[in-house]
Amino acid sequence: MRILTISLLLTLASVGPALAHAHLKNADPAVGSTVKAAPTAVTIEFSEAVEPKFSTIAVADGTGHRVDKDDVHVPGGDAHHLSVDLPGLGAGTYTVTWKATAVDTHKTNGTFTFTVAP
């Protein structure tokens, strides 16, 4: 009983923030970053698993023209990540627009930019 109580208290003490809904955790290229080599893909890591069939990533150039290959997929089978392939990008600033449907069916979206400056 004592062990059970101590375990419960330790468990409660270790409780951290609950990040429900798929929020952007990391991105490659990073949010607002400037990269020298043109990336071959944009990959976003979310705070929770997403439904790939109902999630999108679109990459547009400075004129608003979509440049990605429209092949959103889950790299490595980890549904916390979503990726879209890119053709060879030239110098410039690109806008990434993402929409995610989390596995709990809630939706989130956002945008960020990155710059290619060889």
Binding site: L19, A20, D104, H106
Partner: peptide, 14 residues
């Protein structure tokens, strides 16, 4: 499984 229980990053089992 329909709620937040399986979605939050903390305590995936508890």
């Amino acid at each position: 499984g329909h709620g937040h229980a399986l979605s939050v990053a903390t305590h995936p089992l508890l």
